[in-house]
Deep mutational scan, measured.
Amino acid sequence: EKVLKRMREIKNELLQAQNPSELYLSSKTELQGLIGQLDEVSLEKNPCIREARRRAVIEVQTLITYIDL
Rank of each mutant, 00 (worst) to 15 (best):
E9A: 05
E9F: 01
I10G: 02
I10H: 00
I10L: 03
K11N: 05
N12G: 06
E13K: 09
E13W: 00
L14M: 01
L15M: 06
Q16P: 03
Q16G: 13
Q16N: 14
Q16Y: 10
N19P: 08
N19A: 08
P20S: 11
P20Q: 09
S21Y: 03
S21E: 14
S21P: 07
E22N: 06
L23Q: 07
L23P: 00
L23V: 12
Y24E: 03
L25K: 13
L25P: 11
S27P: 00
S27H: 07
S27N: 06
K28N: 02
T29E: 12
T29L: 12
E30G: 00
E30W: 00
E30H: 01
E30N: 05
L31C: 05
Q32E: 14
Q32V: 09
G33T: 10
G33N: 04
G33S: 13
I35Y: 03
I35S: 02
I35C: 14
I35W: 02
I35Q: 01
G36F: 01
Q37H: 01
Q37V: 09
Q37R: 09
L38T: 06
L38V: 06
D39F: 04
D39L: 08
D39A: 08
E40L: 10
E40G: 09
V41A: 11
V41E: 11
S42Q: 11
L43A: 15
E44H: 04
E44F: 01
K45T: 12
N46R: 03
N46V: 05
P47L: 08
I49Q: 11
I49W: 05
I49G: 10
R50P: 12
E51G: 08
A52S: 09
A52P: 06
R53F: 04
R53S: 13
R54I: 03
A56I: 05
A56D: 02
A56E: 03
A56G: 02
V57R: 14
V57P: 04
V57F: 10
V57E: 13
I58A: 14
E59Q: 10
E59N: 02
V60D: 02
V60L: 12
V60Q: 02
V60G: 12
Q61W: 02
Q61K: 09
Q61I: 05
T62W: 04
L63N: 02
L63F: 09
I64M: 09
I64L: 08
T65S: 14
T65D: 07
T65V: 04
Y66M: 09
I67T: 01
I67K: 01
L69S: 14
L69A: 15
